[in-house]
Simulated scan of single mutants.
Amino acid sequence: MQCELCGAPIRGAPKKVQIEGAVLQVCEKCARLGVELAPPRPVATGRRTQARTQPRAAARPPQRGRDVFDMMVGEIVDDFGDRIKKARLDKNWTQKDLANEIKEREILIKKIEKGDLIPEDAVRVKIEKALGIKLLDVSDEDLERRGTGKITTTVGDIIKIKRE
């Protein structure tokens, strides 16, 4: 093998160095011109060196936890800022009045109305309640899929609780 910097034949193992951003395999002489990169760490095999006192449990496939998107119903409408502003003006409220009503900062209301910020679910619910509007685009299929809206305990949840 030849040194990638000077072209001389490399005796022994090449050195991996970084010289001005380039990673090169070089000889001993050229290795001092750059920063030597550490060799990669060996990958752990997952075995422990100490003896186990308890027998190892059978390997289980990883279980998929509940996802935030599983409970999500519909999407926020595209013109949420305009709808909020229109409903606020229909009540003759300023942005400060709305912010005080939902106990949030006025700057948050300004950003939401401009469309610079999509409201989080908690803020969205407070705005909907205060102004009497709906900001979610919900289809009939989504409502049927959601059912009661309550999270019920499943057999898998009970098994998980028992193991813990």
Score class of each variant (00 low, 15 high):
D142A: 07
I109H: 03
A38G: 05
P9W: 05
I102V: 07
R56K: 14
A44D: 13
L131Y: 07
I10A: 01
G132C: 00
K15V: 08
F80L: 02
E164P: 04
A31G: 06
P55N: 08
L24K: 03
G147H: 00
T94M: 02
R52Y: 10
K110A: 10
L117H: 12
R52L: 11
A44N: 11
I84Q: 05
K162F: 11
D97I: 00
V77S: 04
I161D: 14
A22G: 07
A22S: 12
F80M: 01
A38C: 02
R47I: 05
T45D: 15
R145Y: 08
A8H: 11
E20K: 15
V43G: 08
T152D: 12
V77D: 06
D121T: 10
R145K: 11
C6Y: 06
I107L: 14
I76S: 02
R64P: 06
I159A: 11
D67W: 06
V26G: 00
S139Y: 07
L37Y: 01
A130D: 06
K160M: 05
E28L: 14
K91P: 03
L89N: 13
P62R: 10
R47Q: 11
T94Y: 06
A58S: 09
V77Y: 09
R11W: 08
V35G: 03
V73Q: 07
G46A: 01
R88D: 02
A122T: 11
A87L: 00
R124D: 06
G21R: 03
Q18V: 12
R41W: 09
A99Q: 02
I133N: 06
R88T: 04
S139Q: 04
D137C: 05
R47M: 09
D137L: 07
D157T: 01
M72I: 13
D90Y: 08
R47S: 10
R124A: 08
P14C: 00
I159M: 15
G132R: 01
K91V: 01
V73S: 05
E28N: 13
Q2K: 12
T152G: 11
P119A: 02
P39K: 05
K162H: 12
D137Y: 08
K91A: 03
V68M: 08
R52Q: 10
I158C: 06
R60Q: 14
D67I: 12
L143D: 08
E106R: 10
A8N: 14
D79L: 00
R32K: 15
K29S: 15
K16W: 07
T94P: 03
P14G: 02
A13V: 11
M1H: 13
A8R: 15
I10S: 03
C27H: 03
Q2R: 14
E106C: 01
P14I: 01
I133Y: 06
A99L: 03
A44V: 12
D70G: 02
L89I: 15
G147S: 02
R105A: 14
K103G: 06
E128L: 01
E75W: 10
A87T: 04
V123P: 12
A44G: 12
I127D: 08
D121C: 05
K129S: 12
A87N: 04
Q95A: 05
D137R: 12
P55W: 07
A58D: 09
Q54V: 13
L98W: 00
V125F: 10
L24H: 03
G147D: 06
I159L: 15
D70I: 00
M72F: 09
D137G: 06
A59W: 10
P40V: 00
C6E: 13
R32L: 08
E20G: 07
R60C: 04
K111L: 09
W93E: 10
D70V: 02
